[in-house]
């Protein structure tokens, strides 16, 4: 599981930097693959690596909702609709706590919904708990990860 990756779907570079910083601050050393919008996220999940093999599936997807081109909810739908990816743990990690967003996210099969705190200390705490839980504590189905 050491090689397992985190897919961070985040269009904002500052948020990306802060998230990376938070992850490293709480000693999560997994490779973080960043997709800057929904299209990039889907390309990574359903595309191939340069060596012709499918990209390794992430152990956790941190998904922002407001994204250019294809938004987070659409990514969520596609992932859940596709047999290969439908069981991937997805945490919606976003700015808002609009009731509507929360309901839609869970409706489409999000595993968790976490609002990014403004205060950075709280932000780090939240990130740490997420990593701790989803990367270490949580047991996914054995098929999760590389099927090959």
């Amino acid at each position: 599981m050491n090689k397992s990756v985190i897919l961070l779907v985040e269009d904002n570079a500052r948020d990306e930097a802060l998230t990376q910083r938070a992850l490293s601050k709480c000693n999560i050393a997994n490779e973080v693959i960043v997709a800057r919008d929904g299209v990039e996220a889907l390309e990574y999940l359903f595309g191939e690596s340069p060596d012709g093999l499918p990209n390794p599936l992430p152990q956790l997807i941190l998904l922002d909702l407001k994204l250019p081109r294809v938004d987070g909810l659409e990514v969520l739908r596609k992932v859940r609709e596709t047999e290969r990816t439908r069981l991937l743990p997805i945490v919606v990690f976003t700015s808002s706590n609009e009731q509507e967003d929360i309901i839609k996210s869970f409706g489409l099969g999000a595993n968790s919904y976490v609002r990014k705190p403004v205060d950075f200390e709280q932000f780090v705490a939240a990130t740490s708990q997420l990593g701790m839980y989803w990367l270490m504590l949580n047991e996914g189905p054995s098929t999760v990860g590389e099927s090959a």
């Binding site: 500052r14 802060l18 700015s95 808002s96 990014k116 205060d119 932000f123």
Partner: peptide, 22 residues
Amino acid sequence: FSYSVSHDLRAPLRHINGFSQA
């Protein structure tokens, strides 16, 4: 409007806070 406020207004604050902390 409130959706956008909810999403977009908080992000810069988070950045200000986060980078100040950094």
